[in-house]
Simulated assay, not measured.
Amino acid sequence: MTGLQVAVVVGNPKPQSRTLDAATYVATELSGQAPDLVVDLADLGAAILDWKDEQVAELVAGVGAADLVVFASPTYKGTYTGLLKLFLDRFATDGLGGIAVPLMLGAGPGHALAPELTLRPVLTEIGGVVATKGLYVVDSAYDDPAAYAHWLELSLPTITALLRSRTGASA
């Protein structure tokens, strides 16, 4: 789709994490292109705590303007990380203008509802359109396409239609 802006935001405190790989994979599968903007929050360090930091403000603006954003986090204590929360707190209630995909990785199936119960509400609160159910992947399978296949099969038609309507692309 021409003119499509795709972003990935990763709230794993470890840089270059499995969570980043998973989010990039999902964004690419949904959009048919590599993400234009990848925000690995671990790389920001203390800047994320400085509300006057221009780099963080630019990243918030870029993510807010994207047509599709995959927000990814490991599951910590049944929810997303504080690092991701710090970044999401930067957005106004209408600060996210595109389609948002909540993605969480976890050690086992016990937290499979975490993307729906914890991440989805904040993404909708900041203006994102969460058009499909959130995605939870057991982190030991993060690099296995089969771990994403069923969710992609269900979600891709809806997200593709919404992206086409946003960009004016024809079928």
Rank of each mutant, 00 (worst) to 15 (best):
T19I: 06
A147D: 04
L84S: 00
T132Q: 14
S31K: 00
T75I: 11
I126H: 08
G127Q: 02
A141K: 14
G127R: 00
L37H: 10
Y80R: 05
Y142N: 02
A65F: 08
V138K: 10
Q16N: 14
Y76L: 11
Y136V: 11
L68S: 10
K52F: 12
T24R: 15
L88G: 04
T19Y: 08
A112R: 13
G95S: 12
V10M: 11
Q16G: 14
V56G: 11
L154G: 13
P121G: 02
L154A: 15
A141W: 07
P115T: 09
A22E: 01
P13D: 01
E29P: 02
A146R: 14
G32N: 04
R164W: 13
I126T: 02
A100M: 00
V6M: 12
D94Q: 05
V8T: 14
V69P: 00
V63R: 00
P74W: 04
E125C: 08
I159V: 09
G64P: 01
T19H: 07
V129C: 06
Y25A: 02
P35C: 13
A46L: 15
T132E: 14
D67E: 05
L37Q: 11
M1P: 04
D89W: 01
L30C: 07
S165C: 04
L154M: 13
D67Q: 05
A112C: 09
L30W: 03
L4N: 01
L135Y: 11
V130D: 10
H150M: 06
R166N: 13
T28N: 06
A149N: 05
L162G: 02
L86D: 03
I159N: 01
P15R: 07
D94G: 12
D144W: 02
T81S: 09
V70G: 01
A34N: 03
L105W: 03
G108C: 04
A42Y: 13
L30R: 08
D36R: 09
L44C: 06
F91V: 03
G97Q: 15
L163T: 01
A23Y: 07
D144H: 00
A22C: 02
V138F: 07
